[in-house]
Amino acid sequence: MKRYLAVFLGTAASMEQWKALSEDERARREKAGMEAWGQWVKRYEAAIVDGGSPLGKTKRIASKGIADVRNELAAWTVVEAESHEAAARMFEGHPHFTIFPGDAVEVMECLPMPTG
């Protein structure tokens, strides 16, 4: 089986919409979202290689130095699947974007390190 990195994305605009919800609505959605995420994990627990984690603030390091930057990366996880398509299908209807303010999940194959 191949390994795939899933990157959870969220825009600043989506987070602003989330923050605009009432405190009660946010709490309701957070509870529902965590329950749904737990169900997703249980459904795919045999395929989850590393559950990953949320991601914090970003620093970009380049030839001109180090700078604080903003991107859409929100969290990550690693799964195993028979194909790229099968890995992608695991995330259809995921609570990251159906309940929480996330926008999407991108899935890419973890390729072997070149040797030589």
Rank of each mutant, 00 (worst) to 15 (best):
M113N: 09
K42V: 09
L21S: 05
V41R: 12
D68E: 14
L9F: 01
E106G: 03
R70M: 11
C110N: 06
R60A: 10
L55R: 00
W76C: 00
W40M: 07
K57P: 05
K59I: 14
A20P: 03
P114C: 10
E92D: 14
A36M: 06
F8K: 06
G102D: 11
Y44F: 14
Q17V: 10
V79E: 11
E30R: 10
L9H: 14
Q39L: 13
I48W: 06
L73I: 15
W18Q: 08
S63C: 07
G102W: 06
D103M: 05
Q39I: 02
W76I: 00
T77E: 04
R28D: 09
E80L: 01
E35W: 01
I99D: 03
E85A: 11
M1S: 13
A36G: 07
P112K: 13
P114L: 15
L111V: 12
M1K: 12
E23I: 09
E82H: 02
S22V: 08
G51K: 14
A27G: 02
A62G: 15
R29D: 07
G56K: 00
M1H: 10
P101Y: 08
T58A: 14
T115Q: 14
I61V: 15
G116Q: 13
L21H: 10
E45Y: 02
K64W: 12
G38R: 08
F8S: 06
V107N: 03
R70Q: 13
V105Y: 00
W76G: 00
S14M: 02
L21T: 11
K64L: 12
F97V: 10
E35S: 00
F100G: 05
I66R: 09
C110K: 04
Q17T: 13
E106Q: 08
R3W: 06
F100D: 05
E80Q: 15
L55D: 05
V7W: 06
R3Y: 12
Q17P: 01
V78R: 01
E30F: 13
A81E: 11
E25I: 10
L9E: 12
H84F: 06
R70C: 03
Q17L: 14
V69W: 05
D50T: 00
V78E: 02
A6F: 01
A6Y: 05
M113S: 12
M108E: 07
A46I: 04
W37H: 14
E16V: 10
T58M: 08
M1G: 13
E106Y: 04
L55Y: 01
S22D: 09
F97A: 13
T98G: 08
A6W: 05
E85D: 15
A75Q: 01
R89A: 15
W18H: 03
L73Q: 14
V49E: 08
K57S: 13
A74G: 09
N71P: 00
F91P: 00
T98Y: 06
